[in-house]
Simulated scan of single mutants.
Amino acid sequence: MVALSLLLAAAAAVTSFASAAHARLADPSHGIVGGAEVSAPTPWAAAVGWSRPGMCSGSVVARQWVLTAAHCLLPGDHTMTVAVGSADMAQGEVITVAEKHTRHDLLLLKLVSPATQAVPVKLADADPPVGAENEIFGWGRTSARAPAAGRLKVATVKVTRLDARDNKGGPAIESVKGSGHAHKGDSGGPQFYQGAQVGVCSQGYVERGIQMYASVARSREWIRATAGV
C-alpha cells in the first residue's frame, strides 16, 4: 500500500508543485474526517502558506518560531507566511517567515518578528504510550472538493505504533482514527498527549484512517538547539 502525503494541493500553489501533490493524493477522501471545530482557545495555532497562510497546519513553539512539516516546503526559494494565535484563520496574526530549518519531516520556521497574540505549545520529551488517545488539530479540507477549513478542527486518534517512519524516513508515531483522522491540509498540524505536543502530521494511509506523525520527542534536541525551546 502506498503511503499518501497529507499536503494540501491548492490552486494558489505553483502549478508544477500542485500537479505533483495531486499525484500523491490520488485518493479523493475528506480532510480531518469527522472530529469537530475547536471550541476552546488555541493561541498556539498556526496556518502555514506561501503567498497566503492556509496551505498547511502548524504550531507556535516560541513567539518567533513555528513547527510544521518539511514536506510543506515548495521547491526553490519562496516566501512563506503564517497566521498565528487564533482558531479562526482570518483572525490570526499574519507574519512573514525569515528562516527555514529542517530535520526529517519536521520544519522550523523563524518569523521576521515575534508573534504578539500567540502562546507557545508545551513540547513533549517522550512519545505517548501505545494505546493512548491523542488529539490532532488542523485546517485540512472538510470534504473531497472543499477548500481548507477556515476554523481549526480537532479529532481524537489512538496510538498504534511507535516504530513508524515519517514522510522522509524519520521516527514517527502511528495512530488510527478515533473521532476522525487527518488528510489534505492537515500536514504539519500537531498531535497532543496530556497537553503536550508529541507529533507533527506527516503522512498516512487515507483509506484506512491511519496517519504518521513525526516524533517531537526524538527530535527534541534539534528543536532545542535550533529554536532555543
Rank of each mutant, 00 (worst) to 15 (best):
T68I: 08
M55E: 14
L152A: 08
V82C: 02
E135D: 07
V154W: 13
S86C: 07
G170P: 00
L106C: 00
V97G: 02
R141F: 13
R145I: 11
N167Y: 14
D125G: 13
R145T: 14
T160W: 02
H71E: 04
A83K: 07
A87T: 08
R161S: 13
I173A: 09
A115Q: 04
D166G: 13
L74S: 01
V159M: 04
S113N: 07
A155Y: 08
D77Y: 01
D77N: 08
Q91M: 13
V66A: 02
T156H: 14
S59M: 06
N134R: 06
R165N: 14
V154D: 15
G170C: 02
L152D: 05
A148Y: 12
D127Y: 00
D125M: 09
R141A: 07
R145W: 15
L109R: 01
K110Q: 15
V157G: 14
L108W: 11
K153D: 10
A62R: 14
A70V: 02
K110A: 08
V97D: 00
R161M: 06
S59K: 01
L73F: 02
L111H: 01
L111R: 01
D88F: 05
A87D: 14
T96M: 15
A149M: 05
M89W: 05
S143A: 15
R145A: 12
A172P: 11
E93P: 06
I136E: 12
D125K: 13
F137S: 08
A172K: 05
V130C: 06
M55Y: 08
W139V: 03
D166S: 11
A126F: 11
A149N: 07
S113E: 12
L123G: 05
V82R: 01
L67Q: 12
L123E: 10
V157N: 15
S113V: 04
G76D: 06
A62M: 10
G85M: 04
A115N: 09
L109W: 00
H104M: 04
R151V: 15
T142S: 15
G54Y: 03
V60A: 08
M80T: 09
E133Q: 10
V60C: 09
K122T: 07
D125I: 08
P147H: 13
F137P: 01
T102V: 10
T142C: 11
T160G: 13
L73N: 02
L152Y: 04
